[in-house]
Design a protein around this nucleic acid. Sequence first.
DNA 1: ATATAAACAGTAATGATTACTATTTGCATT
DNA 2: AATGCAAATAGTAATCATTACTGTTTATAT
Lengths: 132, 132
Amino acid sequence: MNENSKKRYSRQRECIVEFLKNTEIHPTANMIYDKVREEIPNISLGTVYRNLSELTRFGEIIKIESGDGAERYDMRIVPHSHFVCKNCGEVSDLFLDCDKELDKIAASVSGAEVASHNLVFNGVCQKCISKK
Amino acid sequence: MNENSKKRYSRQRECIVEFLKNTEIHPTANMIYDKVREEIPNISLGTVYRNLSELTRFGEIIKIESGDGAERYDMRIVPHSHFVCKNCGEVSDLFLDCDKELDKIAASVSGAEVASHNLVFNGVCQKCISKK
DNA sequence: ATATAAACAGTAATGATTACTATTTGCATT
DNA sequence: AATGCAAATAGTAATCATTACTGTTTATAT
């Protein structure tokens, strides 16, 4: 936890961060809540949301607009994209060559100060294609 | 209105489409509701949502995950990206060279069937930069 | 040990969207 | 022009994700 982060330690936040570090599923706030409750049964959903929004604010995690209702959270900090399967709902990482350049390109085209972007693809994943 | 569209005419849907055709502001459902009510005062918000989701389903409009609470709608069908100013909240179009290729690239990297994508940049727009 | 503000649990409120139901209406058929 | 019927609507209730609020607990500096 670096000096850009929150001031005080809390077991609740540690649990949330630990789960995010060790998962690939890009969980929603509610999935995180369910998981962390296994260890801290009386944690509050508000606590999950507050910590997620602080962690996002400090750039330790990113929020993915998956487009299927709830936001997804991801601890990978290297720029990358996401794919949402419209069949099974799974959200997976996608590493594209242009991931790192998109902000610069957008800035030069628009004249704006571009801080970040959210790139989410939609379709049918490999697993679901095979099943048919 | 082509044969892929809904079967029957309705003044409500025509009004919604007309507004979308003639605006650049990428309105939310509620902005559309407010506008259309000027002409059809007793139109229902549910009617706006139902028509937007049908129009989206038939590919006549697209939905933009702007990340600021409500979805935005856009009648431009040519592939393009969007920029959301974190200062003034304005959503603007952004035409990038890679817009048309992204789906193909993502498909070849992931092995998935990629149907579409949503690319939204975040930052401070030119107008807001000048103001400071 | 104590003080203090950060973080919390629990609950209520909000806001966007969807679902439901009875009524209206576009339009094909007569 | 009248009739029938399913599509579309208005109005309202319900749902779901997220935020706000309040009184209590707790990390940590002194």
